[in-house]
Every structure is written in structure tokens, then in C-alpha cells.
Amino acid sequence: MYFNYKVWLVNEENKKFFGIGPVLLLKKIEKLGSLNKAAIEMNMSYSKAAILIKNAEKELSAKLLVRQVGGKDGGGSYITEEAKELIKKYDEFYVRSGGAIEKIYNEIFQGK
């Protein structure tokens, strides 16, 4: 027996708007240079991916993604410095939360 957990950010109405899904999406956009390619790799529709980013931007009052329209070499997307900082903070929050939860789990279930 072991444990599992999920952590996400919620708004004032307790609605999730940022968690591991948007983090992975932003990381894939950074790697692939495209929201569409990132969505495809995550087996997600482009519209769902765009809505995830738009909702997070709205709740955070921050621009996370810059889209470049077509042209000779096609369009693309890149994440902002705000997005990079948010990813860094979320990753740290996730790891530290896991450590705290593991400590509690061990105390309660393992008697340590």
C-alpha cells in the first residue's frame, strides 16, 4: 500500500484552473513551439488546450502564451517568462507537497 495525490490551484469559487495538466501543456508548448502540436501530443483537442491556457491566464491575470500567426515558416507559440516562473513555482509546490504528504502517510500508516 502507498499513497497518491494531486494538487491544483483553485479560484474563489473553488474551481480548478491550474494543475499538472496545464503545466504539462505549457512544458510541451515550450519544447515543440506550438500549442497545436502540444495538444496533439497530449491527445487533447486544440480548443480544449486553448481554453485551459485562457482560463489560467484569466485567473492569474498574467499572459502565459504568445501566439505567432502563420507566415512563410508557419505560426507557432511560445511561453512567457511569467509562465516559466509559474511552472517553476508549481513544480516546487508539487514536490514539497508530496514530501509533506509522505511524512504524514509514514507517521499514520507506517508508524514512523
Score class of each variant (00 low, 15 high):
residue 108 I to F: 12
residue 61 S to T: 13
residue 109 F to L: 08
residue 96 R to I: 02
residue 75 G to H: 08
residue 50 A to C: 10
residue 46 Y to L: 06
residue 34 S to W: 03
residue 80 T to K: 05
residue 50 A to T: 03
residue 62 A to D: 03
residue 16 K to I: 07
residue 66 V to G: 05
residue 35 L to M: 11
residue 71 G to S: 08
residue 39 A to H: 03
residue 56 A to Q: 03
residue 101 I to L: 14
residue 95 V to C: 03
residue 28 K to T: 00
residue 104 I to Q: 08
residue 3 F to I: 08
residue 5 Y to K: 10
residue 89 K to C: 01
residue 62 A to H: 01
residue 60 L to V: 10
residue 83 A to G: 03
residue 61 S to Q: 11
residue 75 G to M: 12
residue 42 M to I: 13
residue 22 P to G: 06
residue 10 V to N: 08
residue 111 G to M: 06
residue 94 Y to I: 00
residue 12 E to V: 10
residue 96 R to Q: 11
residue 84 K to P: 00
residue 85 E to I: 14
residue 24 L to D: 04
residue 83 A to I: 05
residue 42 M to D: 13
residue 54 K to T: 14
residue 8 W to I: 03
residue 53 I to V: 15
residue 85 E to S: 15
residue 1 M to A: 14
residue 60 L to I: 06
residue 3 F to E: 06
residue 20 I to T: 11
residue 35 L to C: 01
residue 102 E to T: 07
residue 93 F to M: 13
residue 26 L to Y: 02
residue 68 Q to D: 11
residue 12 E to C: 08
residue 68 Q to S: 11
residue 79 I to H: 00
residue 30 E to F: 07
residue 10 V to T: 12
residue 55 N to Q: 12
residue 7 V to D: 02
residue 84 K to S: 05
residue 34 S to M: 05
residue 70 G to L: 14
residue 44 M to L: 13
residue 65 L to S: 02
residue 24 L to M: 08
residue 48 K to E: 15
residue 67 R to F: 09
residue 40 I to C: 03
residue 90 Y to L: 08
residue 73 D to R: 15
residue 16 K to D: 08
residue 85 E to P: 02
residue 29 I to Y: 01
residue 88 K to F: 05
residue 111 G to C: 09
residue 79 I to M: 03
residue 50 A to D: 15
residue 74 G to H: 10
residue 48 K to M: 14
residue 56 A to W: 01
residue 25 L to E: 04
residue 86 L to C: 05
residue 48 K to Y: 15
residue 20 I to Y: 10
residue 93 F to Q: 07
residue 39 A to L: 11
residue 42 M to G: 03
residue 35 L to Q: 02
residue 80 T to P: 01
residue 101 I to Q: 03
residue 101 I to S: 07
residue 64 L to C: 09
residue 42 M to F: 11
residue 104 I to N: 09
residue 109 F to T: 09
residue 55 N to V: 13
residue 32 L to D: 00
residue 76 G to Y: 04
residue 70 G to C: 14
residue 13 E to Y: 11
residue 110 Q to P: 01
residue 41 E to W: 04
residue 53 I to D: 01
residue 4 N to P: 12
residue 97 S to D: 02
residue 77 S to R: 01
residue 104 I to F: 12
residue 64 L to F: 05
residue 13 E to L: 10
residue 76 G to K: 02
residue 4 N to G: 13
residue 7 V to A: 06
residue 86 L to P: 01
residue 50 A to K: 08
residue 17 F to V: 08
residue 7 V to L: 05
residue 17 F to I: 05
residue 28 K to G: 00
residue 78 Y to S: 11
residue 35 L to E: 04
residue 47 S to M: 08
residue 2 Y to Q: 12
residue 11 N to P: 08
residue 24 L to F: 07
residue 55 N to C: 03
residue 60 L to F: 14
residue 104 I to D: 09
residue 32 L to T: 00
residue 107 E to T: 07
residue 79 I to L: 04
residue 35 L to S: 00
residue 8 W to E: 07
residue 42 M to L: 15
residue 112 K to V: 14
residue 36 N to S: 15
residue 38 A to S: 04
residue 52 L to G: 00
residue 104 I to T: 13
residue 28 K to D: 02
residue 48 K to T: 14
residue 56 A to D: 06
residue 69 V to N: 09
residue 101 I to Y: 07
